[in-house]
Design a protein around this nucleic acid. Structure first.
Length: 757
DNA sequence: CGCTCATAAT
């Protein structure tokens, strides 16, 4: 090549100083003056030497410029993701006439795409007098990377119509659009093109094809493609490992990881995070720990995604302290770290409802969420939906409302998942009105949103609204699933709508081909039981395709007690005991049944069984949150600092309630013998009464009281709190292990069939 | 010449 023009030489001289600062210059590259100039030009873009504008000036003045000279400038635009600078460069290219160069135009499309400016990219594409397959592919890739896979497909079709032949690059790009769209039809078509156009077997493209099948949930096809890749690289393995994990074959993905190692393919950070994600699915901490040592061995120990995944694995396995240790050790964290911590603590609330420490981890989740807010990161839809889910479990309406406000401010409210979490939160916190409002204001609704609202109405005893919404949902073209039908059937059950219930039950089976599960039967049986139609309930139990479970018998027995059909009750009790239940609540309810029937032989039989089966004590506790602090109460609790005031208020209220017709029931039935010994009979109150009294004392007049309780409310507390709501003119919400109770003005939303014990 | 492949969470 001809010697460099004087101006360029000057710039070389100027830049040599910079070369001295940068020691890594390969002599091989220097032999080629072409590349050397590129290096110079690239160096010239270093902000320490010459700015971008100056580099452009150099190029303007330089003779014999080749299009490749622009490469460093193009790269600089990509590095900086600077749309502004890209436009300047584009102008320059146009002015100097280089825009006629296909290489440069294609590169510019690519740069615009990398800057996220697909409008500019496509405009430029439209005015090009000439296009080749690379130009088309660049535009398509731009759409894929900017999360517009539909448009990528559109461009692909236009390209075929224009008569251009796709290459392996084109197919690779469009296959990743296909992955994003998860469209199996498209995947198969593209696979067909590969064969039809005899596109050269290229490992990248085969990887993309494998990934597309996996993302379309056609794991078998993905595995076939994978097996046929002659030279599998680490990416091929990573695709199939994560594909198995995503498609319910987590064990298989662990096996593949082992296979990969035995074929001497070294995993990278992507592989290791994928495999840790599979460990999360399987809750396989021991495999996870082995992977952890791999991470150290291969030098990924401080890799953030890996640390996040490892931390999440500990969280998933319930080892919160270990996870916290990892969290504290991290010098850098990202939003995913925070979200994993929030979600990890949030799931604990779900796991064991009868465990106070699990409840505490819910509050810990909210604390972490608040810390995130004080950090330099901003919560996203994952943070919001997890935090809202926690609020719904904890009946923490105040915190939930604060988060609602934040979702509005940040614009995340429009997200369907956030919207659904919000609806769910309000409904679970006992505010069906706010839940409805949030639901109505959603711009789009998914199956989950509809189901959540239908279930909300059903839980609040608003059967008509629940069924009306179910019709709306079907009109909107959303297909109900089995969870939706649990909501629908429980709405019918609550309202005693026998014909409707049976109609929907048949609809579910015939029209939607959903096989009824235990919860569906439980709704129907509960309905007959509520109506006192025990024989019909019993017939239904006998007709079921499978053995009734503990829930079915419990519901049935509660009905037998209520309606005084003890013969059926005793029969059902024996069937229930055959299932060897582990739930203390079940035994207590049987004890109560035999006690009230005066069958003391059976009482001692049950007590003996409880010892045999090692059934622990009934763990009754309630929590209430006041001003962001959580207070928990146990039955007969006198340890609390406000004990005296609480008991005084309770006695006072109970006295007044008696005047209005409250009849205390023998609550000693529910308390274990030890407890009775420790406290005199009349002073033992169940935890929810104490929590409600505490709430009345510590919240402003007229404020709602929200309590969560570990087990079902008993009839006595239920009746008492109804009177409390009338006497104090307060709304009192108690979420127990089975139901939502909203007490207002002497009534309860559960329709008085809620107390099982 | 330039354009393609994969990861962590609700």
């Amino acid at each position: 090549m001809a010697s460099l023009p004087s101006v360029a030489v000057n710039s070389t001289l100027k830049l040599e100083q910079d070369f001295r600062k940068v020691p890594t210059v390969s002599s091989a590259e220097d032999k080629n003056s072409h590349i050397s100039y590129q290096r110079v030009a690239r160096r010239s873009l270093d902000p320490r030497s010459v700015d971008f504008q100056e580099a452009l000036t150099l190029l303007t003045e330089a003779p014999d410029v080749e299009s490749a000279y622009y490469v460093p400038l193009l790269e600089d635009c990509i590095d900086k993701r600077s749309l502004c600078q890209t436009r300047v460069l584009h102008c320059h290219v146009t002015k100097t006439g280089w825009h006629r160069d296909l290489f440069l135009s294609t590169s510019l499309i690519n740069v615009y795409a990398k800057c996220g400016a697909m409008d500019d990219a496509h405009k430029l594409f439209n005015i090009l007098p000439l296009r080749n397959v690379v130009t088309w592919t660049s535009l398509m890739t731009g759409y894929v990377h900017n999360s517009l896979p539909e448009l990528a497909v559109k461009v692909f079709c236009e390209m075929l119509e224009a008569g251009a032949y796709p290459t392996n690059y084109t197919l690779g790009s469009i296959l990743s659009a296909c992955s994003a769209l998860a469209s199996i039809g498209l995947a198969k078509q593209l696979h067909g093109y590969i064969i039809k156009y005899q596109i050269e077997n290229d490992m990248s493209m085969e990887n993309s094809l494998c990934s597309a099948y996996a993302k379309c949930r056609h794991l078998e096809s993905a595995i076939k493609v994978f097996q046929r890749i002659p030279e599998k690289n680490v990416i091929s393995w990573t695709i199939i490992i994560s594909g198995c994990g995503d498609n319910g074959e987590a064990e298989k993905s662990l096996q593949l990881f082992v296979d990969m190692l035995s074929e001497n393919v070294e995993p990278n950070d992507f592989t290791l995070t994928s495999i840790l994600s599979s460990c999360c699915i399987l809750l396989d901490l021991s495999f996870g720990k082995q992977v952890q040592s791999f991470c150290i061995k291969f030098g990924y120990h401080s890799n953030l995604p890996i640390r996040n995944s490892m931390m999440y694995l500990y969280l998933k396995c319930g080892m919160l302290d270990e996870a916290r240790r990892l969290f504290d050790e991290m010098e850098t964290v990202n939003l995913i770290t925070w979200n994993a911590m929030i979600a990890g603590h949030a799931q604990m609330v779900d796991l064991a409802k009868n465990d106070l420490s699990a409840q505490r981890s819910g509050f810990e989740a909210l604390k972490i969420y608040q810390k995130l807010n004080r950090s330099n990161l901003k919560p996203d839809l994952f943070s919001f939906s997890s935090a809202l889910t926690v609020c719904s479990h904890l009946t923490a309406l105040d915190q939930g409302e604060q988060i609602h406000a934040q979702t509005i401010k940040t614009g995340f409210l429009s997200d369907v998942v956030v919207g659904s979490s919000l609806v769910n939160m309000y409904n679970k916190c006992g505010s069906i009105e706010k839940g409805t409002k949030a639901f109505v204001e959603m711009s789009t609704r998914t199956l989950i949103s509809w189901t959540s609202m239908i279930t909300g109405y059903a839980q609040h005893g608003r059967s008509k609204e629940a069924l009306g919404l179910f019709d709306d949902m079907r009109l909107a073209g959303v297909k109900p699933n089995k969870v939706t039908f649990v909501g629908v059937l429980s709405a019918c059950s609550r309202a005693g709508m026998v014909d409707e219930a049976l109609h929907y039950f048949e609809m579910m089976k015939n029209e939607y081909k959903i096989k009824p599960v235990m919860d569906h039967y439980a709704c129907i049986i509960d309905m007959f039981v509520r109506l006192g139609k025990l024989e019909q309930a019993f017939e239904f139990i006998k007709e079921m395709d499978f053995q009734p479970n503990e829930l079915i018998w419990s519901v049935f027995i509660a009905g037998c007690r209520r309606h005084g059909n003890m013969e059926l009750g005793f029969y059902a009790a024996d069937r229930l005991l055959e299932l060897k239940p582990k739930d203390a609540e079940i035994y207590i309810s049987l004890l109560n049944m035999y006690l009230s029937a005066g069958r003391f032989k059976d009482v001692s039989r049950i007590r003996k069984l409880m010892k045999q089966e090692k059934i622990g004590k009934l763990k009754d506790w309630s929590t209430i949150s006041v001003k962001d602090k959580v207070f928990s109460f146990q039955p007969g609790d006198r340890l609390h600092f406000q004990s005296e005031a609480i008991y005084e208020l309770l006695e006072n209220l109970l006295e007044k309630a008696k005047g209005l017709g409250y009849i205390p029931e023998n609550i000693s039935q529910l308390v274990d013998e030890e407890d009775v010994e420790q406290n005199s009979y009349s002073l033992v109150h169940h935890s929810e009464k104490l929590a409600v009294a505490f709430g009345l004392l510590n919240t402003p007049k007229g404020a709602s009281i929200r309590v969560t309780k570990s087990i079902s409310m008993c009839k006595d507390s239920h009746s008492a709190i109804k009177f409390f709501s009338k006497l104090t003119q307060r709304e009192i919400i108690v979420r127990d292990s089975k139901r939502l109770h909203r007490f207002m003005n002497g009534g309860c939303s559960c329709g008085d069939h809620g107390a099982l014990l």
